[in-house]
């Protein structure tokens, strides 16, 4: 079954030299086909490609938001175009509602509360788990809509090294949308915890879990000009135990 055809088979050495270029798609289509044929036969080369795969995955991973409306187009194509509302089973419809609302720029917090039944947490809920992790892609559209709200203020969320790691959008209503916090996943025994700095004291806004995404919380009407995120034990803490891994402040 695995007998090579000597006339067509790429020599091992030739294939091996091209593995780096192959895994980052820097070979011609003919070379690609020849290498793939060789990989089917050569355990050594397959091992090297497997080993490099996750590295290339990391190089390729810059994160980033998907453009608004793209999911809806994918959904439409999957449902074979046409009047997708008519043909879509009812369970899918909830994915569209928030986007429509977002696109008509209704109040962000109201939309979240109405559609997802999300409880907006306040400063009183010291270390309560935030239940506002996004549940559908459409929520991302709402987060984007938050940026477009009149009076929205965006703060850069920076690592101690000064790299932008996300942003915080504060709305005049007191809702705060952590729009882009996509940090490295933590062990299950840890959580990211978000703090508002009020009168120079950290006050817990809640836990973001170990795989944080977009979150919404409320400052309870108090003015916060600084936010910080720390890594804490999974149950959360009343006071930060370590230095922040990210901070945001009014520019």
């Amino acid at each position: 079954m695995e007998r090579p055809n000597p006339t067509e088979q790429m020599q091992h050495r030739e294939a091996e030299e091209l593995l780096g270029a192959y895994i980052i798609d820097a070979v011609d289509p003919e070379e690609r086909a020849a290498i793939e044929a060789h990989l089917g036969l050569c355990v050594t080369c397959r091992g090297e490609v497997d080993a490099l795969r996750s590295t290339v995955g990391i190089i390729a991973n810059e994160g980033g938001p998907a453009p608004a409306g793209l999911w809806e187009r994918i959904e439409e194509e999957i449902n074979e175009g046409g009047d997708t509302v008519t043909y879509r089973p009812p369970q899918r419809s909830r994915l569209r509602i928030p986007t429509i609302i977002a696109s008509t720029a209704l109040a962000v917090a109201a939309a979240l509360t109405l559609i997802f039944g999300i409880e907006i947490h306040s400063l009183h809920s010291q270390v309560t788990e935030l239940s506002t992790q996004v549940t559908t892609s459409a929520t991302r559209a709402i987060a984007t809509a938050a940026l477009l709200q009149p009076g929205a203020k965006r703060f850069a969320l920076d690592s101690p090294q000064g790299h932008a790691v996300g942003s915080v959008v504060a709305l005049p209503s007191g809702e705060v949308v952590l729009t882009s916090f996509l940090m490295h996943p933590l062990k299950a025994s840890s959580t990211y915890q978000v703090w508002a700095i009020v009168d120079e004291k950290p006050i817990s806004l809640g836990l973001l879990g170990n795989r944080p995404s977009i979150s919404v919380f409320h400052t309870g009407g108090r003015q916060a000009f600084e936010f910080a995120i720390t890594i804490e034990p999974a149950h959360g803490v009343a006071q930060p135990t370590g230095a922040p891994v990210a901070t945001a402040a009014i520019i």
């Binding site: 810059e62 994160g63 996300g166 996509l182």
Partner: peptide
């Protein structure tokens, strides 16, 4: 292009 980049996975980006 801030909004795009700020969503990025910082850890991976810094490591890379």
């Amino acid at each position: 292009y801030d909004i795009d980049h700020e969503f990025g996975d910082l850890a991976d980006r810094e490591a890379v």
